[in-house]
Structure formats: structure tokens, C-alpha cells
């Protein structure tokens, strides 16, 4: 546990110090008339202090046992795949359009992450993307980007 906590605390501390440098750029004002920088600076300072506290505490913890098995790695790959797929989806959503992008995203989920049989994956992706399009765009009137299919 020690190394994990250590890493987390270090990241938080780094962020706190970064926020501190950024908050210094804002006008602090005086205590009588606090400016825009007053509250952020106090927060960033407090946050850095607490992160430092977490770091010190992690350092004083006894070194933890080694863990991480292959099952963990497979699960983690799925998480990274899901998040990565969604991130790509967000970036191509407007240029490519909702229907195509959603179809591709679902196909990716069903094949790469779940290993469904190809016709299940294909059919499922097709039905789901068209159905959500009909429900949200046509029925509820949500403004979904048409992209390449705008004709």
C-alpha cells in the first residue's frame, strides 16, 4: 500500500504547488477587501499542506507487500480500452457524426472488450446506434451531430 499512497500523495502535492503558482497570478487584495486571488490562494496553500501531510504519512508507513496479478492486468486493459475508446469517440463525434461514431464505438466494445460473435456485435451495434438516434434525435429532439451523413 505504501508505494501507491506515496505516488498518489506526490501527484496531489505537485498539483497543489502548481495551483499555488497559478493563484499567485491573481490579485490577492487585502484582508479588508479580499480580491479574486484571496480564496484560491488560501485553498491552494491548504491543499498543498494536506498533500504534504499525506506524503509524510505514506513515508512513515511500513513497506507494503507486492501484489498485482495477471487478472488485474486484464481488467485494467479493459478499463483503459473503454476510456480510450470513449475519448476517441468524443473527439470524432462532431466531424464524423453521431450515427457512424456510435456504431464504431459499440462495435469496438462488443468485439475488442467482450469478444461477442461477429454477427451479434454487428447487429447489436447497428440496432443500438439507430435506436438511440431515433429516440434522442427524432423523438426527444436532442441536437446530435450528423457529421458525414448530413444530407
Amino acid at each position: 500500500m505504501r508505494r501507491r499512497d506515496l505516488g498518489a500523495a506526490a501527484v496531489l502535492l505537485a498539483f497543489g504547488l502548481f495551483a499555488l503558482t497559478q493563484a499567485r497570478g491573481l490579485r490577492f487584495g487585502t484582508v479588508v477587501a479580499p480580491g479574486p486571488g484571496f480564496f484560491p490562494l488560501c485553498l491552494a496553500a491548504a491543499f498543498s499542506l494536506v498533500s504534504l501531510g499525506l506524503l509524510v504519512r505514506a513515508l512513515r508507513m511500513p513497506a507494503g507487500e507486492a501484489r498485482a496479478s495477471s487478472a488485474d492486468a486484464a481488467g485494467r486493459a479493459k478499463v483503459v480500452g473503454t476510456l480510450g475508446g470513449l475519448m476517441v469517440y468524443a473527439l470524432v463525434l462532431e466531424p464524423v457524426g453521431f450515427l457512424l461514431a456510435t456504431f464504431a464505438l459499440l462495435l469496438f466494445f462488443f468485439t475488442a472488450l467482450q469478444r461477442q460473435r461477429w454477427f451479434v456485435a454487428l447487429g447489436g451495434s447497428l440496432v443500438t446506434s439507430v435506436a438511440t438516434y431515433l429516440v434522442f434525435k427524432v423523438w426527444l429532439g436532442v441536437n446530435l451531430p450528423a457529421g458525414l451523413l448530413s444530407f
Binding site: 469517440y89 468524443a90 447489436g124 434522442f136 446530435l144
Partner: peptide, 20 residues
């Protein structure tokens, strides 16, 4: 396996529909 893509998709549509 069927549920989670739908939940994710709804989250994306929900957030996008709020602000475009």
C-alpha cells in the same frame, strides 16, 4: 455486457445534450 455500453452512451448523450 449489454448494459454497460448503453449506460456509457446515455451518459455521453446526456452531457452533450445539456451544452452541445
Amino acid at each position: 455486457g449489454i448494459l454497460f455500453p448503453l449506460i456509457l452512451l446515455f451518459c455521453v448523450i446526456g452531457v452533450y445534450s445539456e451544452s452541445g
